[in-house]
């Protein structure tokens, strides 16, 4: 599992790679509708890639609940702190 402080950068990097977007364009307020191609199928693929990169399981609750990149980072950080 990666250190908690690395999570924001990793999340932005994985989103940037997956949707071919400059990470400078991804901030906490970014939502799925701001990123071309981020639909429900892509969201599942994104969660799988994040699980592998972060080395931690991501529950369906988190996957479904996060409505922005910032919220996703916060939820993953909390999950990481409690050991998943």
């Amino acid at each position: 599992m990666v250190p908690k402080e690395d999570i924001p950068a990793i999340v932005r990097a994985v989103i940037g790679e997956m949707f071919s977007v400059d990470t400078a364009r991804i901030d906490r307020a970014t939502t799925a509708t701001d990123i071309d191609g981020w639909d429900s199928l892509a969201h599942t693929v994104l969660m799988v890639r994040l699980e592998r990169r972060l080395g931690m399981p991501i529950s369906e609750r988190i996957a479904a609940k996060a409505s922005s990149v910032g919220e996703l980072i916060d939820l993953l950080s909390m999950e990481s702190a409690t050991g998943g």
Binding site: T31, A32, T33, D34, D36, G37, W38, D39
Partner: peptide, 22 residues
Amino acid sequence: HRALQRAVKAAILDRMELMVRS
């Protein structure tokens, strides 16, 4: 423009259940 893109995506999602790519 960003707000307009969001609004168009949201309108199509609401009525067609389709997330437009761009």
